[in-house]
Structure formats: structure tokens, C-alpha cells
């Protein structure tokens, strides 16, 4: 578990951690919709405030949250730059060929950048506060209706949970293999791009082999325990709605209602 911070479960015991995963997933979706519905800075600020409250109640350190943002710095900067240069506004400050920087362009690109950051932070809050297992339980339960049209929801959820479960394992494995090759003098940090890509082969080949081996073993282990799929399986931890979920549900509903009301009653402006 070295440096696996992006989107990984952060084990503390908090109000948000103990919420029903289904509720969290639904909220994430609602929240994303709210971010995209928000058209001015008031609404975005309201969303940001809510997110800050969630971070606070989830007892996730701010540094951790920022770490999640750092992962997409490039994407954010890139889209901001594009918008800044191509947005056709009225109050033009600078123009050159097809590029132009305008007041509206600046506002718009800042707005989009904030939106992206909120998007990343809210999604990582879900994975920070929800273990992979309960996340997949939640997804499976939410997708139950799809079973009626014969989509193998359980199998999909299982695939997802295995994938999530394996991330830290493979990270561990990677650092072990990397260490072993470094002990044999492998150098991953210097040289041009071709050399560096070539230098990853001694890591990738053993990693792939070990992933295949693990998959094989896992399959055998599941067979050995007579796993046959979702039907008739009972759960050790049943998802249950509690008072916490009710409180969170009401708060969340209030947020959505708030954003909608702001849309209606506040004048559209920056």
C-alpha cells in the first residue's frame, strides 16, 4: 500500500463512512447533475460548500482531498487553457488569429475548472469513504432492475469488486518487482522516452504473469468454494437504511431543492 492514495478507501470511522453505499451513489449522481445544472457562481459555491461539509463530516484530511485533485491537474489546466483561448466573448482583451481572450472567456474557463475540480473531489469522496466491497454491494443493489431484462448484474458487480480489490495488490506487486529489478541495476528514471518505455518491460512482464496467476488462483478458489453465481446467495452484511441515511437523504434533497430554487429565483449572472 505505497502511495496508493488516489481514489482509495480511507479508513476512519465517520458519519459519511457509515452511510448506506446506495445512498452515497445516488447522491453522487445527483450531485454531479447539480454541478452540471449550476450555471452561475452562486450555485457552484453552494455545491462547493456542501462538498466541504461532506469532507468535514467524513473526516478526510484536506491534504488527501487535494491529492485527488493533483491527479487531474493536467486535465484541468488543459481544458482551462482551451476554453480561455477559444471562447468567443464580447469584451475582448487580446486577439491573435483564431485565439482570443475575453472577459467572458476567463469567467467561463474558471467556471469549468471549478466544475471539474468539484467533480473529481466528489467522486473521490465516494471511494474514500466506501470500501470496495460495500461499493459493489451498492451498485449491485441499485442495478437490480436490470436483472429483469437478463443482464448479469451480479457477475458485473463481482468483476468490479475483484478489479477494485486487486488494485492495491497489484500496486504492491509492482513495487516489489520494481525493487527487484532495481537491485539488478535497472534504471527507470533516466534516458529518453524510448529507453524509458523499454525499461518498463522487466516490470510489465512479471506483473502481467502474476496478474494472470492470481486470476487463475482466484478462479480455482471460487470453484473450490462452489461459487456458481448470484442466485440463492445470501449476504453476510445486508445493506440497511438507518437514521443516518435518513438525515443524509433529507440534507441531500434539500441541497438539490436549493440549487433548483436558486435557478428559479436568483437572477442569472456571474
Amino acid at each position: 500500500m505505497k502511495d496508493v492514495s488516489f481514489g482509495q478507501f480511507y479508513p476512519v470511522n465517520s458519519f459519511v463512512h457509515r452511510l448506506d453505499p446506495r445512498l452515497k451513489i445516488v447522491f453522487l449522481i445527483a450531485y454531479i447533475v447539480a454541478i452540471f445544472l449550476a450555471t452561475n457562481f452562486y450555485e457552484l459555491a453552494a455545491c462547493a460548500l456542501v462538498l466541504l461539509l461532506i469532507v468535514f463530516f467524513a473526516r478526510i484530511p484536506i491534504g488527501k482531498v487535494l491529492r485527488a485533485v493533483r491527479g487531474v491537474t493536467f486535465l484541468v489546466l488543459f481544458t482551462t487553457a482551451l476554453n480561455l483561448l477559444f471562447y468567443k466573448g464580447d469584451t475582448v482583451y487580446w486577439e491573435w488569429g483564431i485565439f482570443c481572450v475575453s472577459f467572458e472567456g476567463i469567467i467561463f474557463s474558471v467556471f469549468l475548472a471549478l466544475r471539474l475540480v468539484l467533480l473529481v473531489v466528489c467522486s473521490s469522496m465516494l471511494t474514500y469513504t466506501t470500501t470496495p466491497v460495500s461499493l459493489t454491494d451498492g451498485v449491485e443493489s441499485l442495478l437490480t432492475p436490470l436483472k429483469w431484462i437478463r443482464i448479469p448484474v451480479h457477475a458485473l458487480a463481482l468483476v468490479m469488486s475483484i478489479a477494485l480489490r486487486m488494485i492495491p495488490v497489484l500496486m504492491d506487486e509492482t513495487s516489489r518487482i520494481k525493487n527487484a529489478q532495481m537491485a539488478r541495476g535497472a534504471d527507470f528514471e533516466s534516458g529518453n522516452i524510448i529507453k524509458r518505455v523499454k525499461a518498463t518491460i522487466p516490470i510489465l512482464v512479471p506483473l502481467l504473469l502474476s496478474a494472470l496467476r492470481r486470476a487463475d488462483e482466484l478462479g480455482d478458489a471460487m470453484d473450490a468454494r462452489c461459487y456458481t453465481g448470484g442466485d440463492h446467495r445470501t449476504k453476510y452484511k445486508k445493506l440497511r437504511f438507518t437514521w443516518r441515511d435518513l438525515v443524509a437523504f433529507l440534507l441531500g434533497a434539500a441541497l438539490i431543492a436549493g440549487v433548483v430554487l436558486m435557478r428559479i429565483y436568483l437572477p442569472a449572472s456571474y
Partner: peptide, 28 residues
């Protein structure tokens, strides 16, 4: 330093990667 201190990790067979034994041994 790494040249003079050889390190064999646990289950070293899982770090083999090359196409032939000769290539793999020659890596270091």
C-alpha cells in the same frame, strides 16, 4: 553499491521476464 550488494528477493522466480535464460541472467 547495488553492484556490490546483490539482493535476491523472496520468490525471485517471479521477477524473471526475458525471453531466454541467457538474456535474463545478463540483464544485471
Amino acid at each position: 553499491l547495488r553492484k556490490s550488494v546483490g539482493m535476491v528477493f523472496q520468490y525471485p522466480e517471479y521477477q524473471l521476464f526475458a525471453e531466454t535464460v541467457r538474456e535474463d541472467v545478463a540483464f544485471g
